[in-house]
Simulated scan of single mutants.
Amino acid sequence: MGRKVILDVDTGTDDAVAIMFAALHPELDLLGVTTVNGNVPLENTTDNTLRVLDWIGCPDVPVHPGVPHPIALFGFPGGRHFDTDDEHDPHGTALPIPAPRTAARDTGAVEYLVETLRATTEPITLVPVGPLSNIATALAVDPTVAGAVDELVVMGGGHTVTNVTASAEFNIWADPEAANVVLSADFTRRTLVTLDATHRALVPQRTCDALDALGTPAGTAAARFIARRIGAYEQTAVGAAPVHDVVCTAYLVAPEVISTQHLPVVVETASPLTVGRTVIDTRPHAKAEPNAHVALDADAQLLNDLLLATFAREAAS
Rank of each mutant, 00 (worst) to 15 (best):
E169L: 03
Y251F: 15
R206D: 15
V114T: 14
D281K: 09
V253G: 11
V127Y: 06
H262M: 13
D212S: 02
G231P: 08
R80H: 02
G12I: 08
V114P: 06
A168F: 08
T11G: 12
V267F: 06
G147K: 05
A254H: 14
T220Y: 01
G215M: 03
Y233H: 10
A119I: 11
A119P: 05
V193S: 04
K4V: 00
R118Q: 13
G147P: 07
Q235Y: 11
R229V: 09
T93G: 03
N163L: 12
N171G: 07
L132E: 11
A179T: 04
H69Q: 01
A309R: 12
T116H: 06
A240Y: 08
E27T: 13
D10T: 15
G79P: 15
V154D: 01
P26C: 05
E115W: 03
Q235V: 15
V266N: 13
T125S: 08
G108V: 05
T46Y: 00
A136N: 04
L307E: 11
E87R: 12
A298E: 06
P255W: 04
N304C: 12
L31E: 06
G130S: 14
T249V: 05
I19G: 05
P123N: 08
D209I: 07
S184P: 05
A292C: 13
G215P: 13
T278W: 04
V114A: 03
V279E: 15
Q261P: 11
Y233P: 14
Q235R: 11
L252S: 11
T165I: 07
D150W: 13
F225H: 01
I172F: 10
V154R: 10
L113D: 11
V266F: 01
L24Q: 07
G147E: 14
N171S: 13
L50S: 01
D47N: 10
D299C: 08
E115M: 06
T194M: 08
D196W: 09
D305H: 11
H159C: 04
A140V: 09
P272T: 14
P128E: 06
N37Q: 01
R189L: 15
I97E: 00
L113H: 07
N48L: 10
V238I: 13
C248Y: 05
D85Y: 02
P90A: 03
T310H: 04
L28W: 08
D305I: 02
D47P: 00
A197T: 07
T11M: 14
L152E: 05
V9E: 05
E111A: 15
E314Y: 14
I19V: 13
I226G: 03
A148C: 12
D10F: 00
T165K: 10
A288F: 02
A201Y: 04
A316Q: 12
T260I: 10
A254P: 12
A241S: 02
P123H: 03
R51A: 00
E111S: 13
V110Y: 08
V182E: 08
K4L: 11
L273M: 08
P264I: 07
N304T: 13
A298K: 09
